[in-house]
Design a binder for these strands. Structure first.
Ligand SMILES: Nc1nc2c(ncn2[C@H]2C[C@H](O)[C@@H](COP(=O)(O)OP(=O)(O)OP(=O)(O)O)O2)c(=O)[nH]1
Ligand SMILES: [Mg+2]
Ligand SMILES: [Mg+2]
Ligand SMILES: [Zn+2]
Length: 591
DNA sequence: GCCGTTTTCGGCCCGACTGTTTTCAGTCG
């Protein structure tokens, strides 16, 4: 138990680290042949920790861990222990029995817990290097369950291990998936094609692509054509209804083909997530039904009841359709049961874009070019928000340049028809929490975004105070990319997110949902917490070019993944209402 | 290990592909 909260440094451990620890326990348990349900309990808890919007370390200190779904007394003790000393009783005991270096061996495709246990117990292999040697000496092929062929595959997998690519950013996954979808649609006998899996759920990163196609004819015919596609490299597994390939670009892709009559249930199955399925299928089971990709059927007679369209699957359980973005096993099934699903914000609800750059700082288009492009997109209003002077590499604006820039923006606004162009700035929040532009200058602008672009290395407490100072400044309308994470490059900075939310609510400051593909910040998990606390959001492109304006749907997706409704989104306000709140200086507004 | 508008004990989602398993386990989705 943690006695004194000052004893630990919360920067040391984050939610992801804890989730990894629980996943590793699950894997070691599998190798030691523990109950599959015990293993699943650890994996479910890991998933819940990963998706927990607040610091799990804080929850541990407050002894609130068992409030996390799937975390009971035992796993709570493991987490608390991990927070204190980066390990736990369960892990320590397991590590006595099973060498943790086997976890890397388990990463190899085709080697699951049973086979890893076999090569460990029978050959004494404890790590990848040991396995490489055993393979070279031909020891593996001689074992039961292996062969010369499987040994060759293993050899190739070990070679690949070094250059395995991780998860792919959502925007790239969607681009690749879309072109594959088109290629499949062009094949004869294909009826419908859908992008499924984590890509359809708009997960911020994607492990592999999952595509569904339906046919009136022989699924095998589609598979034959699929593996011949230009984009396809190696075929990893190839059955009549499911094929797995590695694309030439390195991504893996699964194609599932079923009869068109199963379109709905197959799409539902292949969209996931796994945890959504476990919950929904358990519910069906309680009601004497069974859900699979082949429909909702009577558990006893197997009589087909529903599955032509996705909505039918849910309807068979008396539920409304749950949008793909919510299907993460994070309470959406109970919410649907209670009739409490939110009416999610949509792209159509978005009336304007309030964060974009021009040639005045590091953008490539003029004010007018951005305004015209946004008018084309149907926006009613935009705000030009160039960088402030601290961001020297982005040619950030001094107060003088900013005032002149604001005049330019007003001139464009006066000259252009069909869209309002508001004055703004993306002002830096300096290390001490002050803003990079004097308050009176900022107060003369319509909409001010305040962001952090440097000085990330500080304690959670310092970072929280820094952000709070900006929120309380009285001249800021939104916090830009609030958590500062860049996918694959930088973790979010540590902070007391709830404290930020409370202050944002109190001072009427919105939190940005930055749609830039490497940011996606806030993400779904934190959007959900934000609106739960009553805070407002603003979904912005942060475009640095006309093309950059196209990313807005990714921001909308994060909001949707966060259970966000239109009412919580500032730029879902129609122009008149937006004007009533923001036109003119912030000072004129009562908080 | 977790959990409860049927349960504090007894359940826990369901199916495709691979390979050597001669009747299905292991791995993966
Ligand atoms: N019922 C059931 N369905 C599963 C299971 N595992 C995967 N699926 C379904 C739902 C998944 O969304 C879909 C594709 O599987 P993937 O492994 O590709 O997962 P997903 O795309 O969700 O995430 P990813 O980004 O690829 O890691 O297959 C499972 O254990 N049970
Ligand atoms: Mg996938
Ligand atoms: Mg997949
Ligand atoms: Zn920025």
């Amino acid at each position: 138990m943690i006695e004194d909260p000052t004893e630990w440094q919360e920067d040391d451990v984050n939610n992801h680290d804890i989730a990894i620890h629980l996943q590793e326990i699950a894997s070691l348990l599998e190798i030691s042949d523990a109950s599959v349900f015990r293993v699943r309990a650890f994996r479910r808890a890991a998933e819940a920790v990963e998706g927990y919007p607040e610091s799990v370390v804080s929850a541990a200190v407050a002894q609130m861990l068992t409030h996390i779904e799937g975390v009971g007394a035992s796993i709570a003790a493991d987490i608390t222990s991990f927070v204190e000393r980066q390990s736990s009783e369960t892990w320590d005991e397991l590590a006595q029995e099973v060498p943790p270096t086997l976890l890397a061996v388990l990463e190899l495709r085709g080697l699951g817990p049973k086979k890893v246990a076999a090569i460990w117990r029978e050959l004494g292999v404890v790590d990848v290097e040991g396995l490489r040697q055993a393979v070279e000496q031909g020891k593996v092929a001689a074992m039961r369950g292996f062969s010369a062929k499987s040994e060759e595959k293993l050899k190739a997998e070990i070679e690949r291990l070094g250059r395995m690519q991780g998860r792919t950013l959502l925007w790239r996954a969607r681009a690749i998936a879309t072109s594959l979808k088109r290629a499949l649609e062009a094949l004869p006998a294909v009826q419908r094609v859908a992008i499924a899996g984590s890509t359809r759920r708009w997960s911020e990163t994607v492990g592999d692509l999952d595509l569904l196609a339906t046919t009136s004819g022989e699924p095998r015919r589609i598979m034959e054509s699929f593996v011949e596609l230009e984009a396809v490299g190696e075929v990893l597994s190839n059955g009549p209804t499911k094929t797995t390939v590695r694309l030439r670009n390195g991504m893996r892709c699964d194609l599932r083909v079923v009869d068109d009559g199963f379109w709905g249930s197959a799409l539902h199955h292949f969209t996931g997530s796994k945890f959504h399925h476990i919950e929904l299928r358990a519910l069906a089971k309680e009601r004497g039904l069974k859900i699979s990709e082949y429909g909702v059927v009577d558990a006893v007679t197997e009589e087909f009841l529903a599955g032509a369209e996705e909505v039918d699957v849910y309807a068979a359980l008396g539920l409304p359709l749950i949008p793909p973005e919510l299907r993460e096993g994070h309470g959406e099934v109970s919410a649907a049961l209670a009739g409490q699903l939110p009416e999610l914000v949509t792209g159509k609800d978005i009336r304007g874009d309030l964060h974009m750059h021009t040639t005045a700082s590091d953008g490539t288009a003029s004010i007018e070019e951005m305004a015209r492009a946004c008018r084309e997109k149907g926006h009613e209003y935009i705000c030009i928000s160039d960088h402030s002077q601290a961001v020297t590499i982005a040619n950030g604006l001094t107060p003088q340049r900013l005032l002149a820039h604001a005049e330019d923006i007003r001139r464009v606004d006066a000259a252009i028809d069909g869209i309002r162009v508001f004055t703004g700035c993306e002002v830096d929040i300096l290390r001490d929490g002050t803003l990079d532009i004097p308050n009176d200058v900022l107060a003369s602008l319509d909409f001010v975004v305040a962001s952090i672009h440097s000085g990330f290395h500080m304690s959670a407490q310092e970072m929280t105070e820094r952000l709070l100072a900006a929120i309380e400044s009285g001249v800021v309308d939104a916090i830009g990319h609030p958590r500062g994470r860049r996918l694959g490059q930088r973790e979010a900075y540590e902070m007391d997110f709830d404290a930020i939310l409370k202050a944002a609510l109190a001072h009427d400051v919105a939190l940005e949902v930055n749609a830039s593909p490497v940011r996606l910040d806030l993400d779904g998990v934190h959007c959900r917490r934000a609106v739960e606390m009553g805070a407002k959001l603003v979904v912005s492109s942060d475009a640095h070019s006309v093309r950059g304006l196209e990313v807005l749907p990714f921001g909308v997706a994060m909001a949707r993944r966060g259970w966000v409704t239109r009412a919580s989104v500032v730029n879902a306000l129609p122009l008149a209402e937006f004007c009533a709140r923001y036109d003119g200086s912030r000072g004129a507004r009562t908080p």
